[in-house]
Design a protein around this nucleic acid. Sequence first.
DNA 1: GGTAGGTACTTACGAATAGTTAGCACTTCG
DNA 2: CGAAGTGCTAACTATTCGTAAGTACCTACC
Lengths: 124, 124
Amino acid sequence: MELRGDVYDHNCPTRVIANHATGRWGSLALAKLLDGTKRFGELRREVTGISEKMLAQTLQALERDGLVRREVHPVIPPRVDYSLTTLGTHAAKQISELFGWIEENLPNFLAAQEEYDTRQTGNV
Amino acid sequence: MELRGDVYDHNCPTRVIANHATGRWGSLALAKLLDGTKRFGELRREVTGISEKMLAQTLQALERDGLVRREVHPVIPPRVDYSLTTLGTHAAKQISELFGWIEENLPNFLAAQEEYDTRQTGNV
DNA sequence: GGTAGGTACTTACGAATAGTTAGCACTTCG
DNA sequence: CGAAGTGCTAACTATTCGTAAGTACCTACC
């Protein structure tokens, strides 16, 4: 029984998973974890702009999808380690590649935006 | 002056572009346009669940970023064609590859979610 | 010939989601 | 002995999203 999803169908569960993996914070968390195991606080500091609430929420979703592994060490102060699963590593590599390409092409994007903006204001 | 972005910095413009390209609707629109030029209505029907408002908004953002080309034909009834730019094609290919992989691995994701859920309820 | 339907949007409003702030229980550092 | 650090969670608010309707124009149908 080989079940295959369809992201274009909004009733398909892949939609939800795709949103977690490519969403605003999930994508950044995944990509950051390619560096290796990280603690909650490390991720919070390295993915700038994320709130603790959103980081917790994001990591829970990724853990449930089987993309991220969560290990609690019952010590004081608390220590929780996050790392990528096999599944997560694959996804993270693809996301990271896309992000790298976007970073490289920043000048092209800025030029496109500027051109678009002048075209719009010029038509008024 | 080679300017390179950093998606982990929340003040960097790449953050915005990454959100458009990987976001809930932007990613689906980009991937769908890999099939070739499409009209507004075609996209609306093929990316199920999207509202006209969100599709319009999404396509405007992608156009501004230089990922999508918009061509208006001044005919009655109105006809507007959307297609990928060179920049957009590169991004769309990467997104599409990731989506394909997620679709293939749906059983793995479902298994992970089920395992997570039983683990949670079991601990109560 | 009047109504229904199709085109690509835009606008207003209620609903869902995201972000902000504060708190917890405990330890170490100054 | 107060402040800071740990990884969260709960309550509140700001922002975004989705839904429904309106627009201007034509075609087809009854």
